Simulated assay, not measured.
Amino acid sequence: MKMNLKNAVIAIVAPLPTLFFYVSFLGYCGDHDCHNSNDTSIWNWCYHHPLLLANILFFLNVNLLFWFIGLLQSSHWLIDVYWTVIPVLLVHYYATHPLAMFKYNPWRSRAVIMMTWVWGIRLSHNYFRREKWLWGAREDWRFTDMRRQYAQNWWWVSFFSIYLSQQVFLIGVCMPMYVIHSVDKPWDFWDFVAVVVCITGIVVAYHADTQLHNFVTENCKLKELGKPVVPNLDKGLWRYSRHPNYFGEQLWWWGLGIFGWNLGCAWTFVGSFINSMCLAYVTVLVERRMLEQDYRAEAYRVYQETTSAWIPWFKSSPKGGKDKNT
Rank of each mutant, 00 (worst) to 15 (best):
Q250D: 14
P244Y: 00
F21H: 11
F21P: 01
A14K: 03
A266G: 11
T307K: 02
I12D: 08
F269S: 15
H35V: 09
L71M: 01
Y28P: 09
L60R: 03
S158W: 04
W313C: 08
I56Q: 01
N55T: 09
A205G: 13
S272M: 14
F66I: 03
N219S: 02
Y28W: 03
L99K: 07
F159H: 11
M3G: 15
V196F: 10
W156T: 07
K132Y: 14
W77E: 06
G264D: 00
F20L: 07
V196L: 12
G248C: 05
T210D: 15
F215N: 05
A299Y: 04
K235H: 07
W133S: 09
C220F: 14
K319S: 07
Y150W: 03
P98V: 01
D234V: 10
H49F: 01
W107N: 11
L279V: 08
F160Q: 02
L51Q: 05
H35M: 10
L164R: 15
T18M: 05
V23D: 07
E305I: 00
V157L: 00
K103C: 06
A14C: 11
K6V: 13
I180S: 08
Y246M: 11
W267C: 12
C265A: 12
E218W: 00
G201D: 08
V203T: 10
H181G: 15
S24L: 01
S41V: 02
Y281N: 13
P231K: 03
A8N: 12
E224R: 10
W43E: 02
L237W: 07
R110M: 10
P17V: 04
N275S: 12
Q250T: 14
K227N: 06
D209H: 01
M115K: 01
V229Y: 07
W190N: 12
L233S: 05
W117C: 13
Y178A: 10
M3D: 15
P312C: 05
L212T: 07
F25E: 02
P98F: 02
V173F: 13
T200P: 14
A95I: 09
F20D: 10
N325K: 14
F102D: 11
I42Q: 09
S75K: 04
I10E: 04
A151G: 08
K235F: 06
L233E: 04
V284M: 10
H125D: 12
Y82T: 00
M177E: 10
H92V: 12
V197W: 00
V62I: 10
C174L: 10
V91Q: 05
V85F: 06
M114W: 09
Y93V: 01
W45F: 01
R301W: 01
G260L: 02
D140K: 04
K315C: 13
S161Q: 13
S37G: 12
T144Y: 06
E224A: 10
I180R: 03
K227A: 08
Y127L: 11
L291I: 05
R239K: 13
Y94A: 04
W67S: 07
N262T: 12
F314Q: 15
W119M: 04
V302A: 04
N105I: 06
M277R: 15
G226A: 05
M277K: 14
S317F: 02
N55S: 13
I162S: 14
H243P: 00
F215C: 01
V204C: 02
S272W: 15
L52M: 13
V81W: 09
V183E: 04
E298L: 06
V62Q: 07
T200L: 05
W117Y: 09
Y22E: 06
F25C: 02
